[in-house]
Simulated scan of single mutants.
Amino acid sequence: MVREVISPAERQALYETYRYSAAIRSGDLLFVSGQVGSRADGSPEPDFERQVKLAFANLLAVLTAAGCTLRDVVDVTTFHTDPETQFETVMAVKQAVFGEPPYPNWTAVGVTWLAGFDFEIKVIARIGAAER
C-alpha cells in the first residue's frame, strides 16, 4: 500500500527540520504525529490552557490538510507532564473540541519530558468516516 505524506503548508519547515511527517495516509487511515502547542516560531506556548488549545488547533490543521475533520478521529493518545494537575484543563478543552458523542477512544499517558512542552496529542483518523 502506498503511503502518502500529509503536511499543513504553514508548518512544513518544522517537519523538514526534524525529519518527520505531520501525518501519513495509508489507505483510508490517517496516522497523525504528536502535535504540541507550539507558536509559529516553534517555541512552546507558556500558558498551559493556551498550549493545549494550540495543540488541538495544530492537530486540526493536519486533519484539514488530509481532508478530515475531528469527527473522523477514532483513536486519541495524549501525553502529559503533570497529569494530576493538568487533567481538568485538558478535559475541558477536549470536551469543547470533540463536543457530542460518539467520542473517539482515548489513552492518556504521563511522561517526564516533551521537549519543553507540557502536552502532546496524536490521533488516528479514518478518512471520510464522518460521512458514513
Score class of each variant (00 low, 15 high):
F119W: 11
P83C: 08
A108R: 11
V2G: 00
G42W: 07
F31Q: 00
N105L: 02
D72T: 04
R132S: 13
V2C: 00
E84D: 10
F56T: 09
V73D: 11
Y15Q: 03
T77E: 02
V73S: 12
E10I: 03
S33I: 11
C68N: 09
L54K: 04
W113H: 14
G110M: 04
A55D: 01
T81C: 06
T112P: 03
Y20N: 09
G110H: 13
K94N: 09
S26T: 14
F119Q: 12
L29P: 00
G34T: 06
L60W: 01
A115C: 09
E16C: 00
R126W: 13
F119E: 07
L70S: 08
E88W: 07
M91C: 12
P101E: 13
E4G: 09
V5M: 06
R132L: 08
V36N: 03
D28Q: 12
F31T: 03
V74A: 12
S26W: 07
T77M: 07
K122D: 13
Q95M: 09
F48V: 14
V111F: 04
K94Y: 11
G128L: 12
V111N: 04
H80E: 07
T85P: 00
T78P: 01
A65Q: 12
D118N: 15
F56D: 01
R132Q: 14
G27A: 06
R71V: 09
V73K: 10
P101C: 04
G128W: 11
R19A: 10
L30N: 04
D118Q: 15
F98R: 09
A92K: 13
V97C: 05
I127H: 05
T112A: 11
P102A: 09
A65H: 06
G116M: 01
S43P: 06
D72V: 03
K94R: 14
D118T: 08
V5A: 13
A115K: 04
F119Y: 15
W113K: 08
F56S: 06
A130V: 06
